[in-house]
Simulated assay, not measured.
Amino acid sequence: MRGSKLITAVMVIAMLTVAMVPGAVAAADSDQSLQVSVEQDAETGNATVTVTQNDTNNTTVDNATVVVESSANYSGNDTYQTDADGTVELPNPDERVNVTLNVSTEDGNNSTTVEAELIPHSESLDISVDTDDANDTVTATVTQYGDAVDNATVKVNGTDYDNTSSETDENGTVSFDEPMNTTNLTFVASANNETAETTVEVSGIDLALSVEKVDNTTVVINVTEDGQPVEDANVTVTGDYTDAGDYETDENGTVDLAAPLQNNTTIEVTAEYEGDTVSKTVTFDGEVAEDDPFGALVTKFIERLKQNTIEGPMGQKVSEFVTEHNPGKADEKRPDHAGKKDKGEQGPPDHAKKDADAEDTEDDSEEDDESKNNGTDKDKSNKGQGSGND
Score class of each variant (00 low, 15 high):
M1H: 10
T8I: 11
I13C: 07
V18Y: 05
A19Q: 11
V38Y: 00
E39I: 07
T48I: 08
V49M: 04
V49Q: 02
V51I: 15
T59Y: 15
S70M: 06
D83A: 14
E95M: 04
V99G: 06
L101F: 11
L101N: 04
N102I: 08
D107P: 06
D130A: 08
D132A: 08
A134F: 07
T137M: 05
T137F: 03
Q144W: 05
G158C: 08
G172Q: 04
E178M: 08
P179F: 11
M180P: 04
N181C: 02
A189Q: 00
A191H: 01
N193K: 13
E197K: 09
V202D: 08
I205H: 02
D206W: 02
L207D: 02
E212W: 04
T217V: 04
N222A: 09
N222K: 09
N234G: 09
N234K: 12
T236E: 12
T242A: 04
Y247V: 02
L257N: 00
A258E: 10
Q262D: 07
I267R: 00
V269D: 01
D291R: 01
F294H: 07
G295Y: 11
G295M: 12
Q307S: 14
N308D: 11
I310Y: 15
G312P: 04
P327T: 03
K329S: 06
G344A: 06
E345M: 06
A356T: 09
D357C: 08
D364N: 12
S365Y: 11
E370S: 13
N374M: 15
K378H: 13
K380A: 15
D390V: 01
